[in-house]
Design a protein around this nucleic acid. Structure first.
Length: 194
DNA sequence: GAGAAGATTATCT
DNA sequence: GATAATCTTCTCC
C-alpha cells in the first residue's frame, strides 16, 4: 500500500480500507469493519487531550500502526492517517481470515474460523499483534503489511455510530461491509459501572 | 503516588 | 442480558 493512501483524513481513509488485506506473518485478514478517530477534534479519540507517551505515534507520519492495550487483557490496532502532526487514525475492528487460519486458530483455540477476527481485540489476537508492533510501518517491507484486496461493492458499505465509546456518539464514523458474517456484533454503548 | 476509567471479550444465569 | 477478568494510562492531589 502506498503511503499517500493514508495521507488523508481518517474518515476518508476508513471506508477505503474495507476489503483491504492486513497481513502479519502467515496470517492475512480482509478488513470488514473499521472506525475513524480524528485526534484533536474528536472527543472519543485517545489524542483528544493532546500528545502523550501512549498516543505519540498518532502524531507521526501516516502508514504506521498505533497499538494500545486496554481492559487489562486486550490489544487493539489502528492505522495512522493524515500528515505528521495531525493525530488521526483508523481503528481496525473486524475482518475475515483469508490465509493462515491454522495459525490464527492456534492462537484462539475456542473460536470458529468465522469468529477469529470478529472484533478489534480478536483481530489482534488472530494476527498475533501486540505492543511490540506499536509504531510499525505498514508501507515499508516490515512484518506487518496492508495491501489492496478484492474490490468491495460500494452499495454494501454502511456507516453508523461508533461502538464502545461514551462521547461523540453522533459522528457516523464506523464503516462496515453489509452482509459480512465477520462484522462484530457489538453495537451497543458501554455504560459499565454505576 | 493514588484512584478511576477504559475504542473488550468470555462466561454465566 | 449482566458481569468478572485484569492492568495500563491518564488525571488529579
Amino acid at each position: 500500500m502506498e503511503r499517500e493512501f493514508f495521507d488523508r483524513d481518517a474518515e476518508v481513509v476508513a471506508p477505503l480500507l474495507l476489503g483491504c488485506v492486513l497481513s502479519h506473518g502467515e496470517v492475512s485478514v480482509r478488513l470488514t469493519e473499521v472506525e475513524a478517530y480524528a485526534g484533536g477534534r474528536d472527543a472519543a479519540s485517545h489524542a483528544f487531550r493532546g500528545r502523550t507517551a501512549r498516543n505519540a505515534v498518532m502524531f507521526g507520519p501516516p502508514g504506521h500502526t498505533y497499538v494500545y492495550f486496554t481492559y487489562g487483557m486486550h490489544f487493539c490496532v489502528n492505522l495512522v492517517c493524515g500528515p505528521a502532526g495531525t493525530p488521526s487514525a483508523v481503528l481496525l475492528r473486524a475482518g475475515s481470515v483469508l490465509s493462515g487460519s491454522a495459525v490464527a486458530s492456534a492462537r484462539r483455540p475456542r473460536s470458529s474460523v468465522r469468529d477469529l477476527a470478529r472484533g478489534p481485540a480478536r483481530l489482534c489476537q488472530a494476527l498475533g499483534i501486540d505492543r511490540s508492533l506499536d509504531g510499525a510501518d505498514v508501507c515499508a517491507d516490515g512484518p506487518l503489511r496492508v495491501s489492496l484486496g478484492d474490490p468491495v461493492d460500494p452499495s454494501l458499505v454502511r456507516c453508523g455510530p461508533r461502538t464502545g465509546i461514551s462521547s461523540a456518539t453522533d459522528t457516523l464514523w464506523r464503516f462496515w461491509i453489509e452482509g459480512e458474517p465477520s462484522v462484530s456484533p457489538y453495537r451497543r454503548h458501554a455504560p459499565r459501572s454505576r
